[in-house]
Design a protein around this nucleic acid. Structure first.
Lengths: 217, 217, 217, 217
DNA sequence: TATGAATGAGTCTTCATTCAT
DNA sequence: TATGAATGAAGACTCATTCAT
């Protein structure tokens, strides 16, 4: 059996194991067995547990970013539409590859090199989102300037909300309550945040003690 | 030395260890040493590694919930103000006890019993939030009906956003860029979500292909 | 059982194992079993295979040097007599602790840190020998100057000869041919080298094509 | 590529590996790679690691013995001259093929079959030396009888001294101190032992408590 | 002749856990 | 209350060796 095929089998098995048990708890023995190969072969192809984990992380990072990029590829739409498309792509991916996403989640707490990889991915996603927001500001003809730190905070809030929602949406899978579709979830998130973002881009801010301006309270 | 004191020392050491290294990687040896006691004593007081971790989780869950409750105790304020207070309390706690929060974060991926404990905490927090939202709806005299599922989704989005922001805010600690204060962070989050929530409570929804109603685009 | 005792048991077992099988081939499992303890205890006390080996080496280095020093302690004797005493002590030690000596032998080809330790021991022994030779030169009233390099070479030759003889003498042990006693072996070596050394100290040298001076050929 | 050539490449690589790392530590993988062939080919040609090592040992034994024989081939010279020639040949070989010599050194501690091979070589060399000594006795017209055991001991002392000197001489290679030439080293050893050997052949012995006879102390 | 693919067996090391005191 | 001493079980990693082609 050619090397590439075997290697993908191993990565598949590893992603599943790491997702379910975590980096430390997953054993190379189990991974090898799940991949249907002997342990030495795993080492021959993937060098070490760390390298194997890194390979998983990189693969899943790539897949996730590709999915989101694909979702926001369509030009010429209004920014909110594009953001919704991107979120939908994200939730679709998240539902289709829960283990892959879980690996990324785990990687964030597994030490420098892995955390960095995921952080880099986040930056990429945040950049996409930020670009969309900028475009949205233009679309709306608004001129409010957002401090870089504020944007960064917002982007993290959005990503965190998305991750949390993804987890929540997927946690339903398997129960008799039907899980919400990716589009529904994306819409929920848009409902949650879009009005606020728009306000911000217009320079309207929520401040303690005063209701946000555009709603006229 | 009285048992209670010793036990707290152990929990402190354990929380630090689990937070920094994760459940699997933290070793009972290290924890005992950090606590300044012998290993058998740890076992005498806390039974097993699992029980020790559970004790940590429960303690931190309690502390976090108490902090948030404390933050939202003040009655008679408008709902947004109360939510802001709660968030501020959350971010304050999060900045004060990063290790405690990290333990909860770790616990979510550490198997059934621990995940359940954290999930229960989330439910509690979500309930608080939900109550506030309900009150806010009344305050606004609005009559929009929110499906239970939708509320649940929103609450998870809010909590996820808050967690993500907390992590982001704390990741700055130690750099020369000053970390945002809890109040700032809470304001960022309010900016992010409050307008949208208000809309929803008025029955206005973002739908694909159409700009959100209340803003008149 | 107190730690010190256990530790000596382990070192004894380890020395035997390393001597017979070499560093790589000796397994920690076997050593632990031979010492009558479990493997973790070996690691608890001696940290790692490398550290264990180093501990063996150091112990045997100390024992050997102590033996030789003890042998040459008696002052006031002629130099040849003292050298003979030292050699006798060496061969006695060598016969009494063949495994210890074998460990030192193995250590020389086991990488920098170990080789260095043995080299340092050699230097110590060579220094003792050199001192004796110097004293012998004085005793003999001779004034021949030996280049440092030449002395070094001679000392190495002497030590090599001694080692080789020790091995030869001990290889007889167990056969029906009786092994030569330490004193006999020491005498053999004195016979082998003393006349030559004396010549050298008188400035007489063997040169190709000419028989050494003092023997009048 | 013809089998013989390939086989020599493999042996060269193996000798280098075994010399530098020892039998256990050298891996078939590394040897195959160093030889520029695939592992199965090594097994096809040389059967097993043990057989490969044995092949190396035999080759190097042959080379060393051949070198020494070559050095003592010239008949009609005085015995000391011949011995010096043989030693020079030995040190020349030793300097030219340090890896080969190292393999023999390693083989001595690698278990029965290998040790036997090297022992056999020693016997051969000792025989050559013994013959020379016998001839020297005749040359000197001396009638001293040397017990077989004593001769054996002397021969081992000589060989050990030679080995030790060879190692010492070669350990200088690479430093800025120039290594002594083979002839110098051989002369050092002759200086070290020849007078003693001559004495012995004349029946003069060093005995404890008495200075050696021929020097009249 | 030559090799890419594959593995059974074994090694070092660590860890949660328990006695005996 | 408190601990020095000790271990069963398991995990990462490597290596000599063999097929199928």
């Amino acid at each position: 059996m050619p090397r590439e095929v075997r290697e993908r089998q191993m990565l598949d098995a590893a992603v599943a194991a790491f997702a379910r048990q975590g980096y430390q708890a997953a054993s190379m023995d189990d991974i090898a067995e799940a991949a249907g190969v002997s342990k030495p072969l795993v080492y021959l192809y993937l060098k070490s547990k760390e390298d194997l984990f890194m390979a998983c992380v990189r693969r899943e990072v790539g897949a996730l970013v590709a999915a989101v990029r694909q979702g926001t590829r369509e030009r010429g739409l209004p920014a909110d539409q594009q953001l919704w498309n991107g979120l939908t792509a994200f939730f679709t991916h998240t539902a289709a590859r829960p283990d892959g996403v879980a690996v990324l989640y785990r990687a964030r707490t597994q030490g420098e090199p892995f955390a960095r990889e995921v952080a880099a991915m986040r930056v990429e996603v945040v950049t996409i989102v930020t670009t969309l927001l900028g475009q949205a500001a233009q679309d709306a003809g608004c001129d409010g300037e957002l401090a870089e730190r504020e944007v960064s905070g917002l982007a993290h809030a959005l990503v965190g909300a998305a991750e949390s929602l993804a987890e929540w949406a997927n946690s339903r899978t398997g129960e008799h309550i039907e899980a919400p579709s990716a589009k529904e979830t994306a819409a929920t998130l848009m409902n949650f945040c879009w009005a606020g973002l728009e306000n911000l881009m217009k320079g309207a801010r929520w401040v303690p003690g005063v209701a946000p301006a555009p709603h006229g309270r």
